[in-house]
Write a protein that binds this DNA or RNA. Structure first.
Length: 239
DNA sequence: AAGGGTTGCAACCGCCAGCGT
DNA sequence: GACGCTGGCGGTTGCAACCCT
């Protein structure tokens, strides 16, 4: 007997999330928190599987997500940590508050890999001649992955790893203003309500992004006294 | 301007570990 | 200890946006 699917996929939505789905999910989580992902879509009125909801929340909707490109320091640290941990992206992501494992994995696969390939050609690091034709094999008996690994070690052995975990925002600190947090979320939420009413297919992603950006910017601001406690008691606000 | 190729990223898939029964 | 359920994870895919010829 085969493995049981994570959920009954019949009749469920797939593919990109709509603004309305995002709104339902965020509203539900802010109001109720997360007890069981499998129950979330049912209770939130979503035609999605729990896994999909979890992924959407973690990778895209969480208010504490950091957006934008990776800084050089972050990139260096990713390289260092990848050398240390291998492809254990969640472990690596735990060093980057506001970054997701998926984001780091994507960044690694699309940007850093290429970068390292370029650096691999740099004789100052490898002390080997540049291979001019761009052929990956280059006639070497060493495999690509072990060669790349060796290069990474060469590069990253000289990198000081900054401890980003100490740069957490005040979310985890003791003194937080629950009321202010609730009221700000409400304010931004109302903004989304207004915007979503005029949303159409073409500006959908822009509108959604601006809302998320807004709430994330506010959460990320070090000057804010953000309280996660505020997220557990918002029934009145979102009714 | 067109269309073929490339890139970047959101989302999915399937396996695995941990937990409760 | 066996079993089932769930969340978490890493690999992979699909597709829109962008680039190049």
């Amino acid at each position: 007997m085969g493995r049981q699917p994570c959920c009954d996929k019949v009749g469920l939505n797939r593919g990109p999330w709509t603004v309305d789905e995002d709104r339902k999910l965020v509203t539900f989580i802010l109001n109720n928190g997360i007890q069981c992902w499998r129950q979330v879509p049912k209770l939130a009125g979503l035609l999605r599987c729990g896994k999909s909801c979890r992924l959407r929340w973690i990778n895209y909707l969480r208010p504490d997500l950091k957006r934008g490109g990776f800084t050089d320091a972050e990139e260096d640290m990713v390289i260092e940590l990848q050398t240390r941990y291998g492809n254990r992206w969640s472990k690596i992501a735990s060093h980057f508050p506001g970054r997701t494992d998926n984001e780091i994995k994507n960044h690694w696969n699309t940007k850093i890999k290429k970068k390292l390939k370029h650096i691999e050609l740099d004789t100052t690091i490898t002390h080997k001649p540049i291979e001019e034709d761009g052929n990956d094999n280059g006639g070497s008996s060493q495999s690509d992955s072990s060669k790349a690994k060796e290069m990474e070690l060469n590069i990253t052995s000289q990198i000081e790893v900054p401890d980003f975990s100490n740069t957490q925002t005040s979310q985890s600190e003791g003194s937080c203003d629950v009321e202010a947090t609730s009221s700000k979320i409400n304010e931004i939420w109302e903004m989304l309500d207004m915007e979503s009413s005029i949303v159409n297919e073409t500006n959908r992603s822009n509108t959604l992004f601006s809302f998320e950006e807004e709430i994330q910017r506010w959460f990320a601001s070090p000057s804010n006294d953000v309280s996660w406690d505020a997220l557990t008691n918002l029934e009145e606000i979102f009714q």
